[in-house]
Design a protein around this nucleic acid. Structure first.
Length: 924
RNA sequence: GCAGGGGUUACCGAGUGGUCAAAGGUGCCAGGUUCAGGGCCUGGUCGGUUAGUCCGUUCGAGAGUUCGAAUCUCUUCCCCUGCACCA
């Protein structure tokens, strides 16, 4: 049992921290400190972060974005802005429903995660079987966590994306998009579960496998009264086809498509797949592959070359791959080559693709690696080597694309044969087999008449680039990714048949998809708290047209809403994790551009990296997720704020670990103690150490403004927190009677965005009655900044370190330390040396100045190697004053007498060794 | 494959032409602290050398530009992230 006092102290400190944080949280709430309304005489600043998805509690990783956001908000408040920071909850889509269902099903996996990682008992879990209950439980949990973190949020504006009133707003958005011709309908391939009859994403599959779709080209070889279909990813090799491969054992069908009115020969498996892809096939005949092979008279006709090709048997052809029939290109496909050899056929085929180092790469590699037959596992390796090299470096030798790169020829051939009706598009899952959670085998479905947002629209893209160009992007280096994403966007399916959210306005039974209802919701915050007296039925097209666009006739009950929107919009800063750069954030830009006039386009985006836990990614399976509220209980909110935000550059991942948090905590304790002690000495004057400290502080505050604006949070923390505590520690050694009142008066305000709770407490201890949160950011006092003072202090630190080194080297403690200050002429000589960097020139210049040439020679030789990096030394007088001021300090440090002597007035031989910025030191 | 980011001394991580053997943190070593342990403080932590110094080698690999390169150019190897209809 451990019952000693130190642990009790620890507990006391945590309890004290919690008490301080709780106290200020309460005061902010009582005074409604962060509820923001339009103020005519104040400039506004409006920022938001991506709202959370409440299907689990938040963890310290989530806290990074919100803490960065809150620091930003609090800084802008100190700069005198009327700041709005709202928050809401995104509940759209299927994951919440899926989670609730899994809880209802008593899914062991989920319950274990709840119990072990989130600390949610099975009894509690049992009450979360309905999506709404789940949402309410976790959103409350998340909101509490945000309050505990001290985020300066205006909670009056909170909403959920399944709220009726919000739905009206989103429907208005979609009507606007449609008016602008940006909602279109078309076909769309999608991973599909045949059993559930529903589209399937990564979280719906076993093992969370992400289904990948690949577009194959099914080439049509005329055969009898129909076509043999062979699916390929390499349509450009059609010029080298020698035969058709058919697996004799597999079941094949002859089927007629009522879509194309054509008859196809394909595997039975392919028939099922093609029917999901809208070919409407009807089986005319069903048979084994050998039937096709045995009919020696019937040939398949190559649609491009017109060659008549034989049908051969190949056991390696799989019936669930593509159409179950493949075209044979032995000059480039290793399997085809070896299969022909296995049949004893030696063909004199021609080369159609040029690659360096090979004529027939497939054949040559097979011979080189000694592959015996088509069952050799080495074949797969050869296939990937050949394909990679041909696609990357190959050049076409035949056909209309002769001389073009293979990668280009693939696309052009495909386009051409599709247009000429010589091939069909055939979709396939490229990473199959994938299974739905229900157990069924996934397939590809082509949905007809799907609804899309037409992000492909080129005018829209152009305007979005224009908006982006004017935006501030932090960090700037991510800008390219936005440009890339905007260019790359294609049409995006925007309606689903299942999920929470907003009913799709143009077709019954559909719901607006999750990434499409969260693009301009920042506009909704500006009025969300003013809608209590409105029925959602009043929230018509005209309603939103007037409030958000200023169109149409004003009604007097709409006035306040309109004014609120005008006051707060546009959005000044959008914060988010870096993972949203390629989806949500470009959508956010594009939708603003589509719907709002240019003056309401967003101003800036700030993105941040993730939080790692002890160097590893946080994940449910690793069980290393630290829930935020647990972390707050353990370390306190201000410590967590520092820990998640200060460890790395904004854009890179940061690591959370105990020692970092402990480090922050101990520094907080040091500062708390200091404030306690030093606030009483405010009547004392300023001696050299205080002046030094204030010089350092003012210089930092000067730099801090710029860093705050650019959100260089790590650098800020380093400078105004870590370095400041280091400075304070030095100061305490130097100072006889600490007097930090003036220092803290400025510093507490400057640091308050980082540690608002402690800052409020300190501010109060310093005798202030108002919230520090609404103070003015401290002004730099240039008159306090002194290079000479800081340089002098550095000199003292250097001398201190040198004495320690010498003392250690000679192995004794001195009884007297003599410090010799270099003469003024040496400083003049340094200035000369900066102008004349060649030795002889320097000597001549020194001679002209009538310097003592014997000494000049010696010093000159010494400094030649560092001629490019000579220090800007203080004057002799300044050096003397600095060191003389530290006589007491150094004497105390080394327990001996200290003498500071001008070189000229000394008779010690070592005195001559003194250099500017480097006094000679003698220990006796 | 395409696009973006990155490889720094035991680890994490600063560092964009000289002031860099390279900040800071962690770990480790030594010493201190009315110090059980932990904590805290001081110093050390590439090799050699020295009254506070100087010399050699180092920043994925190779080549180049320069009086001078972790930093600029080229080549090459490796790692991470994204490529959607899913929040």
């Amino acid at each position: 049992m451990n019952t000693d006092t130190t642990d009790v102290d620890q507990v006391d400190k945590v309890a004290r921290t919690n008490a301080i944080e709780g106290k200020w949280r309460k005061k902010w709430a009582e005074k409604k400190a962060f509820e923001s309304d339009p103020e005519k005489n104040m400039e506004k600043y409006y920022l938001t972060a991506a709202f959370p998805y409440p299907n689990s509690p938040q963890h310290i990783g989530h806290a990074r974005t919100y803490t960065t956001l809150d620091i930003h908000a609090r800084y802008m408040r100190l700069k005198g802005y009327n700041v709005l920071l709202p928050m809401a909850f995104h509940v759209t889509g299927t994951p919440i429903i899926a989670m609730a269902q899994r809880i209802a099903d008593k899914d062991e996996e989920v319950l274990k995660v709840f119990e072990n990682i989130y600390g949610i008992s099975r009894q509690t879990a049992a009450t979360l079987t309905r999506p709404e209950d789940l949402v309410m439980h976790f959103s409350k949990e998340i909101e509490e966590g945000m309050r505990e973190m001290g985020y300066s949020i205006d909670w009056r504006r909170k909403f959920y994306t399944f709220d009726k009133k919000f739905n009206r707003f989103i429907q208005w958005q979609f009507h606007k998009l449609k008016e602008h011709g940006l909602i279109v309908q078309g076909e769309h391939p999608i991973a599909w579960c045949p059993k559930d009859n529903q589209a399937v994403g990564a979280h719906d599959t076993k093992g969370d496998a992400d289904p990948e779709l690949k577009e194959f080209t099914a080439v049509k070889f005329a055969y009898g009264d129909g076509y043999i279909l062979t699916a390929t990813l390499r349509p450009e090799t059609i010029y080298g086809v020698t035969n058709i491969w058919i697996n004799p054992i597999n079941i094949h069908v002859k089927a007629k498509s009522s879509k194309t009115n054509e008859v196809y020969y394909i595997s039975k498996n392919a028939y099922e797949k093609m029917n999901y892809q809208n070919f409407d096939l009807e089986i005319l005949e069903e048979f084994k592959g050998e039937k096709l092979i045995s009919d020696k008279n019937k040939k398949a006709k190559n649609p491009i070359t017109g060659e008549e090709l034989p049908l051969y048997a190949a056991p390696y052809v799989k019936d669930d791959e593509g159409t179950g029939i493949v075209m044979s290109v032995p000059s480039h496909a290793p399997y085809d080559h070896i299969a022909l050899l296995d049949m004893g056929i030696h063909l004199n085929y021609s080369q159609i693709i040029q690659v360096d180092g090979y004529k027939f790469m497939a054949k040559e590699l097979i011979e080189k690696m000694g592959v015996k037959d088509q069952n050799d596992p080495k074949l797969d390796d050869i296939v990937s080597q050949t394909y990679k090299k041909e696609i990357l470096t190959g050049v076409m030798l035949v056909g209309p694309y002769k001389g073009e790169k293979v990668s280009v020829a693939i696309e052009k051939t495909k386009k051409s044969i599709l247009e000429n009706n010589q091939a069909l598009v055939f979709w396939e899952l490229s990473n199959k087999p994938i299974y739905c959670r229900c157990g069924a085998h996934l397939t590809v479905n082509i949905l007809g008449k799907q609804w899309f947002i037409d992000y492909e629209n080129s005018t829209w893209k152009q305007n979005s680039h224009k908006c982006l160009d004017k935006m501030l992007i932090v960090p700037e280096k991510t800008r390219k990714e936005y440009d890339y994403a905007i260019d790359w966007f294609k049409q995006k399916a925007c309606a689903r048949s299942k999920g929470l959210g907003t009913p799709f306005p143009f077709e019954d039974g559909l719901v607006i998809e999750a990434l499409s209802d969260s693009t301009i919701y920042m506009a909704f915050y500006t009025i969300a708290h003013l809608l209590k007296d409105f029925d959602e039925k009043e929230m018509t097209e005209e309603f939103f047209d007037y409030i958000l666009l200023g169109k149409g006739k004003e009604k007097k009950e709409w006035k306040e809403l309109r004014e609120s929107f005008i006051y707060w919009y546009p959005l000044d800063a959008r914060h988010s994790g870096a993972d949203l750069v390629r989806n949500h954030l470009p959508f956010f830009i594009m939708n603003h551009v589509a719907i709002f006039p240019e003056k309401n386009w967003p101003k800036s985006i700030v993105t941040n990296g993730f939080v790692l836990m002890d160097g590893a990614k946080m994940s449910k399976s690793m069980g290393n997720i630290l829930p935020l509220r647990k972390a707050i209980r353990e370390y306190g909110a201000d410590v967590i704020r520092f820990s998640v935000v200060c460890g790395a550059d904004l854009s890179s991942d940061t690591d959370f670990n105990k020692s970092v948090a402990d480090g922050v905590k101990s520094r907080l304790v040091i500062i708390s103690d200091l404030i306690e002690k030093s606030r009483k000495n405010s009547k004392l004057g300023h001696t050299r150490p205080e002046k030094w400290l204030l010089s350092r502080l003012n210089r930092k505050i000067k730099g801090a403004e710029d860093r705050y604006q650019k959100l260089e949070i790590r650098q800020l923390a380093l400078e105004i927190f870590y370095e400041v505590t280091t400075d304070l520690q030095w100061y305490l050694k130097r100072s006889e009677k600490p007097n930090l009142h003036d220092f803290f008066k400025k510093w507490v305000v400057a640091i308050s965005p980082f540690m608002p709770h402690h800052a409020e407490e300190y501010w109060h201890l310093l005798g202030n009655k108002e919230f520090v949160s609404f103070e003015k950011f401290p002004k730099t006092d240039e008159s306090h900044i002194s290079d000479a003072l800081e340089h002098g202090e550095e000199l003292i630190q250097k001398v201190h370190a040198d004495v320690e080194k010498i003392s250690a080297l000679i192995g004794k403690k001195p009884s007297v330390i003599k410090i010799f200050i270099a003469s003024e002429w040496k400083r003049e000589f340094y200035k000369l040396a900066k102008k004349h960097q060649k030795f002889d020139e320097l000597m001549r210049a020194a001679a002209a100045e009538k310097m003592p040439m014997a000494d000049v020679q010696r010093v000159g030789k010494q400094i030649m190697k560092n001629i490019h990096s000579l220090p800007d030394a203080l004057s002799e007088k300044e050096e003397f004053e600095a060191l003389n001021d530290a006589v007491g300090f150094l004497g105390k440090e080394f327990s001996c007498n200290i003498e500071v002597i001008h070189e000229d007035k000394a008779d010690h031989p070592k005195a001559k060794a003194a250099l500017p910025d480097k006094p000679a030191i003698v220990l006796e």
